[in-house]
Design a protein around this nucleic acid. Structure first.
Lengths: 121, 121
DNA sequence: GGGGCCGTTCACGAGACGTTCACGACCGGT
DNA sequence: ACCGGTCGTGAACGTCTCGTGAACGGCCCC
């Protein structure tokens, strides 16, 4: 992982998620998520820029290290794996939002599955 | 402390809109708008010259790059798409104003739809 | 050696995007 | 009233991005 100097990386709270970068664990409510190294790196990278849109190139540099090669779908795959685990833990919340052409945004929003939007997407 | 330091970029505020050019996102009140690349470029271009009328040629150069060709309706189409999304998010405000023959002006003004349509004029 | 995880890559399909076209409303000039 | 220019708006369509299941090979531990 790229040597990112984080001074205040104690604990990240995003909605009902509690992410401990230095401990390598994520808690969702009372449950503890079982994430692989990549999944964990990804969720940390996303959570660190809470609310903002993170570009794929930045995600790749942050989590994988090196430059994102053309056609590399690793990010997509791991975004998907993360979504599955997050939804399994907190079905009524949606954390990872796609901004086509920009990247991904990490923020807790009520899941569409439960309450079909009154205000559009 | 430990605040989430957004890399001190320019943030544009127009009425209830918060536009972050470098983050690629727009918030309307508490909601985050989901804009495409073109839509986002357009709203940034408009918001940057807040209050003034922006000529179509300038918009095109700014967002699309290159010169606006005769008969190109892309701007019209994307103005429309933006209007739809903005109205969906903030129905009581009207942001994009047409100045026929001149261009468009971006400014928050109370929507007429609310007052007029009910009275039957 | 065999079985599990993991991470990467492939393949297919759905949906988002951007451009262009078509039609109609509106307006000013003649 | 007619005409040409401008703009609003819905729709068509080719392209590209992204979601997702599956295959493949590496690694570790029994």
């Amino acid at each position: 992982m790229a040597a990112v100097d984080h001074s205040a990386d104690d604990v990240l709270y995003v909605g009902a998620l509690e992410i401990r970068p230095s401990d390598g664990l994520v808690r969702a409510g009372s449950r503890t998520l079982n994430l692989s190294v990549r999944e964990f790196g990804l969720i940390v990278a996303l959570a660190r820029s809470n609310g903002r849109v993170v570009r794929r190139e930045d995600i790749y540099r942050d989590v994988w290290g090196g430059e994102l090669r053309d056609g590399d779908r690793s990010i997509d795959v791991y975004i998907h794996k993360l979504r599955v685990k997050l939804e399994e833990a907190l079905p009524e919340w949606c954390f990872i939002h796609t901004h086509v052409g920009f990247g991904y945004r990490f923020a807790p929003e009520p899941s569409h599955a439960f309450h079909i939007s009154a205000t559009g997407r």
